[in-house]
Nucleic acid binder design. Structure first.
Length: 434
RNA sequence: UCCUCGGUAGCUCAAUGGUAGAGCAUUCGGCUGUUAACCGAAGGGUUCCAGGUUCGAGUCCUGGCCGAGGAGCCA
């Protein structure tokens, strides 16, 4: 029996007979020659079937294959200049696992399709070359993120999905029944992360987060994945440096390991190669001045809109670090700048090329009295935060951290138009299926 | 929630208020090197839904449903 081989490894079997297991990607026919394209999730290879070289039933079996029919193919690997991957398979035998009926052919053809059709068939769309490339890059980014923190002595501490209260306002929370009570799906592991940081020093959580925002833009999902590090004794500058290193490290890893996928996506890698520390840094004050000079209607004290973020980041080739936003637009737990209490010791990192904010975080409020006052000012339910206030009662220290949205990072690194392609099954404002 | 655009064959799209059409997909035929192959033929329609105007509506009007892009919103 010839060995069962993954298509990405066929080059190691040149001249040998192998078995491939996969699906028919496309079939071209030229008289007594058949050119079936096989895919197996690791790559695509063209088979060649010469009529007089194989038994008639093998030729007919291949000729009758429909797109995405599943097969086990036996053939001899041959190097060929004409093949895009450098190798072809001279088919010897084929075992058809399932032939898709021509009466109900595979719906996604190699031609153009609309967004709605593709999203309705997301479970099948994942099989196309482009989507598999994105899945590969996403996997690499997640692995790079985890390696980054693991190599630096961070402990992964999982934070809950069900939460009893909001981190911030309640308008963007998904409410669920929790027996006789109400619970909410988490927006962020932030508060629990702070408890974990006091236990292990350096921590991170990584999981799905949920926001019931009625946002219908290319940057928004209702369910998205976020990695959130938190470090005891860290200050704002430490958080900025950590975010900068993390982003540079992730981009470098993708460039190292996922060149073929980036090529499939036609991503210009020269732009990614420029993502090296140090990233440009500016204060919110400076950012507002720049925006004003570019014609934005931003006023000091307001948050940036999507177009503002694009305006700001477009003049830089690296991610842009913006720090010290007005406290009024930031969460209650952000530490104020002792030198200027009206601004918070917080930081956002904006991706280049208009991909917007990918990191948000900063230094947390370590002082008990100050935190109590802010909770009162925001009219938050004090009882729900008693456990959080304990962290300021028992050995409070300065600490800082941030959250990085995985889907926006994937969209940026892959150069995608919309975050809906960055996650296998996106959840958006009018999309809960499949 | 608001603004703009759209919904016609399985898919992507055409069609001055006057006989609903093309490419792809499917089926059949041709081609010994095809690369989203090509060439020829065939089958395939409740024009999103409900009303209305008109001799006549895919097209115009009203309402609704669904989708896309954007705004607001959004660590």
């Amino acid at each position: 029996m010839p060995p069962v081989v993954e298509i990405r490894r066929v080059s190691e079997y040149a001249g040998q007979e192998v078995i491939l297991q996969g699906w028919l990607y496309n079939l071209r026919e030229s008289g007594k020659l058949l050119f079936p394209l096989f895919r197996d999730g690791t790559g695509i290879i063209q088979g060649v079937v010469v009529k007089k070289a194989v038994p008639p039933e093998v030729f007919e079996a291949v000729r009758g294959l429909t797109q995405e029919s599943s097969v086990r193919v036996t053939g001899k690997v041959r190097a060929d200049q004409r093949a895009p991957g450098g190798f072809e398979l001279d088919v010897v035998d084929v075992q058809v696992e399932q032939r898709i009926s021509p009466e109900a052919p595979y719906p996604i053809t190699p031609k153009d399709h609309g967004v709605e059709f593709l999203m309705d068939h997301r479970h099948l769309w994942l099989r196309s070359a482009r989507q598999r490339a994105i899945l590969g890059v996403r996997h690499e980014i997640i692995k790079a993120v985890r390696d980054f923190f693991d190599d630096r002595g961070f402990t992964l501490v999982d934070t809950p999905i069900f939460t009893p209260a909001a981190c911030e306002g309640t308008t963007t929370l998904f409410e669920v029944n929790y027996f006789d009570d109400k619970a909410y799906l988490t927006q962020s592991g932030q508060l629990y992360n702070e408890a974990a940081a006091m236990a292990v020093g350096k921590t991170y959580c990584f999981g799905p987060t949920f926001r019931a925002e009625k946002s219908k833009t290319r940057r928004h999902l209702t369910e998205f994945w976020m990695v959130e590090p938190e470090v005891a004794f860290a200050r704002l500058d430490d958080a900025m440096a950590l975010g900068e290193e993390l982003i540079a490290s992730v981009v470098a890893r993708v460039l190292e390991k996922r060149r073929p996928e980036l090529q499939t996506l036609e991503r210009k890698v020269d732009k990614l190669e420029k993502v090296q520390p140090p990233f440009p840094r500016m204060s919110y004050d400076e950012a507002v001045k720049i925006l004003e000079s570019k014609g934005s209607e931003i006023q000091w004290g307001g948050d940036f809109g999507g177009t503002d973020e694009t305006l700001l980041s477009e003049s830089f080739e690296r991610p842009l670090i913006v720090h010290r936003y007005p406290s009024q637009v930031k969460a209650f737990y952000m530490a104020p700048d002792p030198a200027r209490p009206e601004v918070a010791l917080c930081v956002d990192i904006l991706a280049p090329e208009g991909y917007g904010e990918i990191v948000g975080g900063g230094e947390r409020m370590a002082d008990l009295a100050l935190l109590e006052r802010r909770i009162q000012e925001e009219k938050l339910p004090r009882e729900a935060f008693e456990w959080y206030l304990d962290l300021r009662r028992y050995g409070s220290v300065p600490h800082a951290g941030f959250g990085m949205g995985i889907e926006r990072v994937v969209a940026w690194i892959c150069g995608l138009e919309h975050v809906r392609e960055t996650i296998p099954f996106p959840r958006m404002l009018y999309r809960l299926k499949p």
